[in-house]
Design a protein around this nucleic acid. Structure first.
Length: 857
RNA sequence: GCCCGGGUGGCGAAAUGGUAGACGCUGGGGACUUAAAAUCCCCUGACUGCAAAGUCAUGCGGGUUCGAGCCCCGCCCCGGGCACCA
């Protein structure tokens, strides 16, 4: 079963065992099993043309160690891999070469698959998935339709980057320094029709349920900040022109209402036009135009100074009837709150800066303990100049003022979130098509009469050039809606995706019962369910496929559901999810959102997708810089596998340092772990390739070595559970160094050690296990148990301290009483001189560790 | 600016408040060898010292403690994230 090589020939051994595992389906996960389940998942990769990067195998090795360890511990382990294969680079490649993005994608996947297999990961390849496979994205479309049905998807005009020169929409990453990455042409914001998902409806649950997951604190905090919940009040200010109604503002500080000296509207606020007096018209329009032309970056990063323009109109402060001037300024954003604020320059830094610049009044209404604290004053305090509320603590005032306004019907408590609804469409070819047909109102109503189950309560519509279009979903039988072949991958030029040019696919007769379609150029087929329609030309963003892939692995070939209810119940969700921190917000938030929707639909049994999350760190180049092609410091796994073998690579990746740390690669240090494996080899086999004669079944083993074995079994197990692979490897090295000194080696000891090594370096472990005469794969052997009795010690090293300084140490029996320990210290040749003639003030004794004697100075 | 991490030998790093530097790399010395590689053994934080030993040392300055790399306060530097969110 093993190879016959004499020395450690990893180039022969590694492919040999990889074939063995493949032939024996060694890592197949069974959906029906009496064993406890363990699901360990990597963030699946985007198969880029560059191939695997050394950062990929870092996280993958960690999960592979866990997977192999858990199998040995008796778990039914699900450890799958797949491809997040829709995406911009493949589309750009298609535009450049004219070849279908699918073919390039499949080539890249083939490379990734080959590279990952060469690393010897224990994936269940029978569960491989590919988000671009219609059999997969059929279910991505299905989930979208569930969101649609629940009113969580709608259509709206949203600003996107438009490049007039390229006549196309650009993604953020296609824009460099405000110019298109391709050609360096100027770009502008243009409002285009977009699909939007109502993630804000789940804001509260996405925030609250973070308490239920075991994630890095930093990641939880980032999600909290991203959701950005803030409690405050909506307050109505009457406008002086009664015809215009009220101005609604949002504030977190209703307690400072008496300090409001002006109002600010976002330049895009719908009331601006009506509020602008003729004398101000020119300045306001100019300012609006300037603000619209600014990118977000210019409005935030680059804007050191506040700017704004007076509209000429006034509002009335509901608490004191004061006239308050209304300004517009781009430091107020239309997208947050109500797009309008009351400005309290005495207690807000931004308002203060603005008021100073435009010489607006500043009225202090909160006073802290420090009466001369400079304004703006943000801290704690009591109210002043606030009429009946004077003297109240600000938190109390906040409640009272809000309640009083509510009673008068001019305000209410409210909660705002920074979280925006999720812009879910792309004007691209290489993504999941939306299973939506746009129809007229009459046809929609006819379809709705027979399709109540899968339509939203309120129709999703879009009005353009005076015509209102109704979004009619494909019935489930019409899924998947596949991408059509297209003449060109170039954008349509009018802001729609390349699909807009495929008239035969686009303009159709549509059967709303079956989802069948024929080109509109043909005559309408007979039957009552055939209507005229135009397909949606947008496609879904790359996030869509990765939002739910962890569920598809449970039952990847199911043709009737995303996964069977049994599989969803048995496997649940990943017990451990490992991937980069760069996905801390978007991917992880979007996936949580979809999961909660599926939970509400009764599809999945739990309300959170990833119970435990871990971020592996980044591996830097040897120069300590981020690996990049331009720096020329990129290390490819292929090179290392060829020169040192994948066992060495895996071991070294884990030995570099803590998994979560950012750490530099080193070609010198990898020799250390390679030597370690060589040493293990030589302990097992002679240079002729036969079993080392020192390995004896009933060898006399020193008690110390037995104890160290059991310590090692315990530490390696604990460290794997805690994802502290670097210290587990150190312990194995220490053990091997000791084993090397033994004149005889107990065969059982060596076998136990190989089992500990197997999750880290599985190929050499299999080889040596087999060469030592064991039959069957090492990974079928149950994980060795440590014997607590073997760990018991009769003697421990006691450290003597005098006044906290280390003065000597000595082996003592465990459980030595304090008075005896003190006697030993008094007579210890190195300690005694520090105690002679001194008055002992205090003795601190930690049995088995230290005795610290404190003397009078 | 705000929010997170992190600063320990020549290097990667270890250390439930209890011997700082395990393990590995590098460097030096030795053994084996005709020689080299490989392998094995010893040394390798700084300073003083022939030695024994001692002093100093975990970014900087304070503090708590019998005892601090670890806890607290105030700084400095590096990395990451957020960015006018009312």
């Amino acid at each position: 079963m093993a190879t016959k090589c004499k020395d450690y020939n990893f180039q022969e051994i590694e492919p040999h065992w990889q074939s063995f595992w493949e032939e024996n389906h060694s890592f197949r996960a069974e959906n029906a099993s009496v064993k406890p389940k363990y699901y360990v998942l990597d963030m699946f990769p985007y198969p880029s043309g560059a191939g695997l990067h050394i950062g990929h195998p870092e996280g993958y090795t960690a999960t592979d160690i866990i997977a192999r360890y858990k199998r040995a511990k008796g778990f039914n382990v699900l450890h799958p891999i797949g491809w997040d294969a829709f995406g911009l680079p493949a589309e750009q490649h298609a535009v450049k070469t004219g070849t279908h993005p699918a073919s390039n994608t499949q080539n890249n996947i083939a490379t990734f698959r080959r590279q990952i297999k060469a690393l010897g990961f224990s994936y269940d390849w029978e569960r491989e998935i590919d988000t671009t496979d219609p059999k997969y994205y059929r279910w991505t479309q299905w989930i979208f339709l569930q969101l649609f049905k629940r009113g969580l998807a709608y259509v709206d005009k949203r600003p996107v980057w438009w490049c007039p020169e390229l006549r196309t929409v650009l993604a953020n990453e296609e824009i460099v320094d405000g110019k298109s990455e391709v050609g360096g042409f100027p770009v502008e914001r243009r409002n285009l029709r977009q699909w939007v998902l109502r993630i804000t409806a789940y804001a509260e649950r996405l925030l609250a349920d973070l308490k239920d997951v075991d994630w890095p604190d930093s990641t939880k905090r980032m999600q909290e900040a991203w959701i950005g919940r803030s409690e405050g009040a909506e307050i109505l200010f009457k406008l002086e022109n009664p015809a215009l109604g009220d101005l609604k503002i949002f504030t977190t500080r209703p307690d400072t209402l008496f300090g409001c000296t002006y109002m600010v509207l976002a330049p895009e606020h719908p009331l601006v036009d009506a509020l602008t007096l003729p004398a101000q018209r020119e300045a306001v329009t100019a300012y609006q135009k300037r603000a619209a032309g600014k990118s977000d970056l210019e409005r935030t990063d680059l804007a050191k100074d506040k700017s704004g323009v007076f509209t000429g109109s006034y509002a009335v402060n509901p608490v004191n009837g004061q006239r308050v001037p209304i300004w517009i300024a781009d430091y107020v954003l239309m997208g947050y709150g109500t797009g309008a604020i009351m400005a309290v320059p005495a207690h807000d830094e931004r308002d203060h800066e603005f008021a100073v610049r435009y010489s607006l009044p500043i009225i202090q209404v909160i006073e802290g303990d420090d009466l001369i604290a400079p304004l703006p004053y943000i801290g704690d305090g009591k109210l002043v100049r606030s009429g009946e509320y004077d003297g109240l603590a600000w938190a109390e005032a906040k409640r009272r003022i809000t309640a009083d306004l509510a009673e008068r019907g001019v305000g209410r408590m409210t909660v705002n979130y920074k979280l925006r609804d999720w812009l879910f469409s792309r004007q691209r070819y290489w993504g999941e098509p939306f299973p939506i047909v746009w129809v007229n109102e009459a046809d929609y109503r006819r379809a709705a009469a027979t399709r109540t189950v899968d339509l939203p309560a309120a129709p999703v519509t879009f009005t353009e050039n005076g015509a209102t279009h109704y979004a009619l979903p494909l019935p489930q039988g019409g899924l998947p809606l596949e991408l059509p072949e297209v003449q060109s991958y170039l954008p349509s030029g009018n802001g729609e995706s390349p699909l807009a040019n495929e008239t035969q696919w686009l303009e159709i007769w549509f059967n709303f019962d079956t989802g069948a379609a024929v080109p509109a150029s043909q005559s309408c087929p007979a039957g009552p369910a055939w209507i005229r329609g135009r397909r949606e030309t947008n496609t879904m963003p790359q996030w869509a496929g990765s939002c739910w892939y962890y569920l598809r692995f449970l039952d990847p070939k199911n043709t009737t559901a995303i996964a069977s209810p049994e599989a969803l119940r048995y496997w649940g969700t990943p017990d451990l999810y490992v991937g980069g921190a760069e996905h801390a917000v978007l991917h992880l938030l979007y996936a949580r959102f979809w999961h909660k929707v599926l939970y509400d639909l009764g599809v999945v049994p739990g309300h959170e997708p990833f119970a435990k999350l871990f971020h592996q760190g980044i591996i830097l180049g040897e120069d300590g810089e981020k690996m990049s092609k331009s720096r020329g410091n990129v290390v490819s796994p292929d090179t290392i596998i060829a020169s040192h073998g994948t066992d060495t690579l895996r071991l070294y990746l884990m030995f570099l340092g803590p998994l979560e740390a950012t750490k530099p690669w080193s070609m010198q240090q990898i020799e250390g772990v390679h030597r370690f494996l060589q040493k293990v080899w030589r302990l097992c086999l002679t240079p002729e390739g036969t079993v080392n004669p020192r390995v004896i079944t009933d060898a006399m083993e020193p008690a110390d070595l037995t104890k160290l074995l059991h310590q090692t079994i315990r530490k390696v197990g604990d460290d794997i559970e805690g994802l502290r692979f670097n210290t587990a490897i150190s312990q194995m090295m220490t053990f091997i160094n000791e084993l090397q000194k033994a004149p005889e080696i107990r065969r059982g000891t060596l076998l136990s050690f190989l089992q500990l090594l197997a999750p880290f370096a599985p190929h050499i472990a299999e080889e040596l296990w087999s060469r030592l005469g064991e039959s069957g794969s090492i990974q079928l052997a149950p994980w060795p148990a440590f014997d607590p009795a073997k760990l018991a010690t009769t003697e421990m090293k006691l450290v003597f301290q005098v006044n906290g300084k280390h003065r000597g140490d000595q082996l003592v029996p465990t459980g030595l009483p304090q008075d005896e320990a003190l006697e030993l210290a008094r007579h210890h040749p190195k300690v005694a001189p520090y105690l002679d003639g001194k008055i002992i003030k205090r003795v601190v004794y930690v049995p088995g560790k230290i005795i610290n004697v404190v003397t009078e100075p």
